[in-house]
């Protein structure tokens, strides 16, 4: 019979508590269910191996997980890889198809997400963590390893670039508002 050591039990609690948030963050960043699953798996594989060395005094465990997820995503952006996990069977496959259908309905989000990916990876992470995951600057600073002062200035610049690019694509403020209303009507 397999014995479970205390570290593994603690990691199971961490996994249960943070899996959904990490998966959603990655899905919001990449807007692709399979890729988000793959990156989530890589994030938790790394976290699982490194967990015995994690010290709580270094920060919150959620910030640590978001940091690993962001690094995995940045690595993927530098060297795109094909999904390492199997395509999935049965429940997982059905669940993935449902998730893709939900994602497709969020047209306004998909358009913004598409424009967001034209920014630098760190700016993408900053905007996603601040406005999609609604994290406070103090926590984003912990995740990205930057001071809050730097992040405040950088956020302003990132938003200016994002807005300019949305305008260029014909999605000005009013257009975005209408798309948002359409999303609300569609029950998103």
């Amino acid at each position: 019979m397999r014995t479970i050591d205390p570290a593994e039990r603690r990691f199971e609690q961490v996994y249960e508590a943070h899996f959904d948030a990490i998966f959603r963050y990655l899905l919001h960043r990449v807007a692709d269910v399979s890729l988000a699953e793959d990156l989530t798996a890589q994030t938790f594989f790394k976290a699982y191996r490194a967990f015995p060395r994690f010290r709580h005094r270094e920060g919150k465990v959620s910030s640590w997980l978001y940091r690993i997820a962001t690094n995995e995503l940045n690595s993927h952006l530098r060297r795109p890889r094909t999904a390492s996990l199997e395509a999935g069977f049965g429940d997982v496959r059905v669940e993935r198809e449902n998730a893709e259908r939900i994602l497709e309905r969020h047209t306004a989000f998909l358009e913004v997400s598409d424009v967001l990916r034209t920014l630098k990876p760190e700016d993408q992470a900053l905007v996603a963590l601040r406005y999609f995951e609604q994290k406070p600057f103090a926590e984003i600073a912990e995740i990205l390893g930057r001071s809050t002062r730097v992040l405040t200035v950088r956020t302003h610049r990132a938003l200016t670039r994002l807005r300019r690019e949305l305008d260029r694509r014909g999605m000005d403020h009013e257009g975005l508002r209408k798309a948002l209303d359409r999303s609300a009507e569609a029950g998103c």
């Binding site: 699953e37 699982y48 998730a99 939900i102 969020h106 406005y131 948002l180």
Partner: peptide, 26 residues
């Protein structure tokens, strides 16, 4: 613009079967 981004409906997707499978892999 910041408020618009915050209010933008995000896909609230959950994947419990994948979560379970990944835990088994781990």
């Amino acid at each position: 613009f910041e408020k618009l981004l915050t209010d933008l409906p995000k896909p609230a997707v959950e994947v419990p079967a994948f979560k379970q499978e990944l835990w088994r892999e781990l």
